[in-house]
């Protein structure tokens, strides 16, 4: 329990930081991205001792039940799919909304408390090979419904999720071609492309 309050405080600070720091107060992109990288890395650990996933449904089940329970300390209240790549997760008392008093004024504030989680789920799925769009819908605080739309065309993407990050000057990124390596061996480099 005690770590949870630390996380809740950190989450609140991250929300403030991201919104104060962006030019547009409604820009939740950074917040979503912080969630994305967290989810991407975290799922690597959480699936370490789990058997291979058979298909998309099995992966989705893992994310919406096991992963959710581990992170949010409660099970989702409802999980549905239309079997065409659309999944809906319903949480009647979403952790980051439980501390907010219900009301229409507060409802306007709701998106900033769910953006991190949208990114978290998208990041976890992305690392497991599922390219998706995650959105959230809050009608009455603290209930929340997450819509996960699987993008089935982009199945074999070359790390486009991190490309956004790579374009920024802090990191130098190399263009990498698929499987054209071990062609030349040089003393100074292990592989060439």
């Amino acid at each position: 329990m005690s770590e949870e309050i630390v996380f809740d405080c950190l989450h609140a600070e991250i929300v403030n930081y991201c919104l104060n720091n962006s030019k547009d107060q409604n820009d939740l992109g950074t917040l979503e991205y912080i969630g994305f990288t967290t989810g991407y890395r975290l799922i690597e650990r959480l699936t370490r001792d789990v058997g291979r996933f058979k298909d998309e449904l099995e992966t989705m089940k893992f994310i919406c039940t096991d992963f959710w329970t581990l992170i949010y300390k409660k099970q989702v209240d409802n999980l549905r799919t239309n079997n065409y790549g659309m999944y809906v997760v319903q949480d009647k008392a979403f952790r980051f909304l439980t501390r907010i008093s219900p009301g229409s004024k507060q409802l306007e504030q709701a998106p900033k408390f769910v953006a991190f989680t949208c990114g978290l789920v998208r990041g976890a799925l992305s690392n497991l090979g599922i390219n998706s769009t995650v959105t959230a819908e809050v009608q009455t605080i603290p209930a929340c419904r997450f819509h996960i739309e699987v993008n089935r065309d982009g199945h074999h993407i070359l790390f486009s999720p991190f490309a956004k990050l790579a374009q920024r000057p802090l990191f130098v990124r190399q263009l990498r071609l698929q499987r054209i390596w071990i062609c030349v061996y040089t003393q100074c480099r292990l592989w060439t492309y």
């Binding site: 950190l10 912080i34 990288t37 967290t38 975290l42 001792d49 789990v50 058997g51 096991d66 581990l70």
Partner: peptide, 29 residues
């Protein structure tokens, strides 16, 4: 599946979740 995942230590996951989120914030900054 769920049986395997529940073996994960919840306390450890909590602390790793915090660690990773903090790391994401630092790199964002």
């Amino acid at each position: 599946m769920s049986r395997q995942a529940s073996r994960l230590d919840a306390k450890k996951v909590n602390s790793e979740f915090l660690t990773l989120t903090y790391g994401a914030l630092v790199t964002q900054m």
